[in-house]
Amino acid sequence: MPCASPASWRPTAAASSLQWKLPSFNSPRETFDDALLALVRTHAPATTILENTSLKGLHIEADHVRLQPNQGSEITCQLVIGCDGANSVVGRKLLPEPRLARAHHCVGVRAYFENIKGAESGTTEFFLTRDYLAGYCWLFPVGQGRYNVGLGMLAEVVAEHKVDLKQTLQRLLATHPELAGRFAEARQLGPTVGFGLPLGGGRVRPISGARFMLCGDAASLIDPLQGHGIDTAIQSGILAATQATACFARQDFSAAHVAQYDAEVARKIGKKLAKSYRLMRFLSTKPWLVNAAVRLARVPGLKPWVQKAIG
């Protein structure tokens, strides 16, 4: 989830505003994906793009990979890079490991709204409650007066407390002290939809093997503290492209050679995600500490320290 500037971080009993270190913005996913696709068509016109097609199966052979799309004929290639999301077909087919534990998985719901009272087009808002600190409610502007509004929390919390996320989101919008009344005249655009978020920073899992690599959500690279994953997805994509170049240069697609990608992801992305995960778990049972941190963020000299801590 790309973030806007500034951000407002609002627990139950305290509030503060922080500026992101770098300019950033929010965008509906379809707009962002369309922009990426336009870049591919502009800078790599020889690329074959199959739209409205999903991957049904794949098989790693000694000297190539066979891909079976749900439409059309079989495709063969030398290397597969799976950027196919939290429910990655590539990951499920090639890494027969148990799914991530609930402690390392987040679930969420979101809907789009317009006409929200007090919402600002350049401000991203986060809202916490004492009930579920291992998660948050958000309000992200996405342009043209529309806002992405949602709620996400750890899967283990949802399971333990039997939380109905859709109902809880509606209750928070109506009763949270910082939200009550702001949605009285708001209009929801489309349904409330759910999704899963495999968090980074947990146990070390392989994200590559002979003739394949995983990127982004497929590689469980979502920030555990803030819930965003677009930045790490693109970062991992760049690292995968570098490794792919090395594989073709040496004509070496072995698991041992491709594993250099795992090492680079761990070094350049994994350490930060592990720090975020530890901080999220530490704060998730301490509402008093969260409120203290937010109050400290109001002190000019201490604000940079708090901003650095939460990313």
Rank of each mutant, 00 (worst) to 15 (best):
R203Q: 10
R205K: 03
R205S: 01
R205E: 03
I207W: 00
S208I: 02
S208L: 00
G209W: 01
G209R: 03
G209S: 01
F212Q: 01
F212I: 00
M213E: 02
M213Q: 03
C215I: 09
A218T: 03
A218S: 08
L221E: 09
L221C: 11
I222V: 15
I222L: 13
L225Y: 13
Q226L: 15
G227Y: 14
G227P: 12
H228S: 15
I230W: 15
D231Q: 14
T232P: 11
T232C: 12
A233K: 11
Q235V: 08
S236V: 05
G237S: 08
I238H: 14
I238K: 14
I238A: 12
I238D: 11
L239M: 07
L239T: 03
L239N: 06
A241K: 06
A241H: 07
T242C: 08
T242W: 10
A244M: 09
T245F: 11
T245L: 11
A246W: 05
A246R: 12
C247S: 07
F248S: 08
R250F: 04
F253K: 04
S254P: 04
S254Y: 04
A255D: 06
A256G: 02
A256K: 05
H257T: 02
V258N: 02
V258R: 02
A259I: 02
Q260A: 07
Y261H: 04
Y261D: 03
A263I: 05
E264S: 13
E264G: 08
V265K: 08
A266E: 14
R267Q: 10
R267P: 09
K268W: 10
I269M: 10
K272P: 07
K272F: 13
L273M: 08
K275M: 07
K275Q: 10
K275E: 08
S276M: 09
Y277S: 02
Y277H: 12
M280T: 13
M280L: 06
M280V: 09
M280A: 11
M280R: 13
T285Q: 12
L289H: 05
L289A: 05
N291I: 00
N291M: 00
A292Q: 03
L296V: 00
L296Q: 04
R298G: 02
R298A: 01
R298L: 03
V299P: 14
V299N: 13
V299Y: 15
P300T: 00
P300E: 04
G301W: 11
L302H: 09
K303C: 11
P304A: 04
P304I: 05
P304Q: 05
V306T: 12
V306D: 13
V306G: 13
Q307T: 12
K308M: 10
K308R: 14
I310R: 15
I310C: 15
G311R: 15
